[in-house]
Amino acid sequence: MCQLLLGCTTMALVAHSAGFSATYGTYCMFVWCFCFAVTLVVFTLDVTRLHGCMPISWDNFTVAFAMLATLMYVTASVVYPVYFLRSECPSEGCEVRNYRIAVTVCSSVCCFAYGAEVFITRAKPGHVVGYMATMSGLLKVVQAFIACIIFGALANDSEYNRHIPTQYCVVVYSLCFAVTVVVVALTVSGRTSSLRFPFDRFVVIYTFLAVLLYLSAAVVWPIFSFDKKYGTPGRPEDCPRGKCPWDSKLVIAVFTSVNLVLYFTDLVYSQRIRFVSHSSA
């Protein structure tokens, strides 16, 4: 209910006077509308107990969505004030600035509401929960979200097609993203038990391969983007903000390293879970 109240308030403030424009504003509005709509559906199905009729693993779905909504709200709460909030009053007047401040506050508070749901429903020692509630499952959602940020930077004139090694990096991002989404989809749909191979072992092997692939991309991408022989070490002075290939390359390099750390953490945690389970048996 807190998520619905804050989400509705944020959308109302934006529609009333705060306003939005361009691609960044459209993305923020999409985040608020999408999260509100799905949260409303989840709340309705939960209250009416109709979620039992859904052909999905309800617990896995709700915690996966809560994690995704947290990440989406975090990005919207950062992007909106960066592009629409200024210390001085805009041409529309100081009232518009005040509404935009209120939007930023409501969106930021809603981050904590979704984050609190993830914290409450996450796996705890001694409790039997779905895979998505474990650290490994939550990391899968974060990994897919970070990959989407990388794809956005790739699409923003990143010049990745200038070198074959950078094209290889795009293949790495796409392959790991696709398999991660499949893992999440199979878990949420509750189809893992019907597979003809041990799903947990497959996830561990895939995570190990993803670590190796991202490690290679974390080395190759900076070399062919910032080395003097292939790219530009420093940011060009005549590069416009928001439309600079160098900025996109930097974003990709940073988030490649972030995802490498996430996959490595996922691998370590998965091995620890398998060791504890094997020892208990």
Rank of each mutant, 00 (worst) to 15 (best):
N259V: 13
S277Q: 15
N259K: 04
Y114G: 07
W221V: 10
V141I: 15
Y206A: 11
P245F: 07
R235T: 10
P236N: 02
L209D: 00
T256Q: 03
G234C: 05
V63K: 04
H16D: 07
L209E: 00
S280T: 15
A69S: 15
F255E: 08
T9M: 06
T75I: 11
C148I: 13
A155R: 08
S277I: 04
S277M: 05
K243R: 14
F34Y: 03
A64N: 08
A155M: 06
Y206E: 06
K124M: 01
R272D: 01
A178T: 15
T207P: 11
R241W: 06
L267I: 04
S158F: 12
F199P: 10
D200V: 14
P236C: 10
S77W: 07
A37K: 05
A12C: 08
I252E: 02
V96H: 03
L6D: 08
H127W: 07
M67L: 07
L138Q: 15
C53P: 01
F226W: 06
V211D: 03
T207K: 02
Y27D: 00
R97F: 00
E159D: 06
V203E: 05
E95M: 13
I101S: 08
I164S: 01
T23Y: 04
F119W: 11
S107T: 06
P222Q: 11
W32N: 14
V211T: 11
Y160E: 01
V188K: 04
C244R: 07
V42E: 05
T26E: 00
G7Y: 05
D227F: 11
C239Y: 05
F36E: 08
V181D: 00
V179D: 04
S189R: 10
T104F: 14
T70G: 12
S108K: 00
F275Q: 06
A113I: 10
A64D: 01
K243I: 04
C89W: 02
Y269K: 09
V103N: 05
V182T: 11
R100H: 09
T121W: 13
T26N: 12
T9I: 14
R100S: 05
N60D: 13
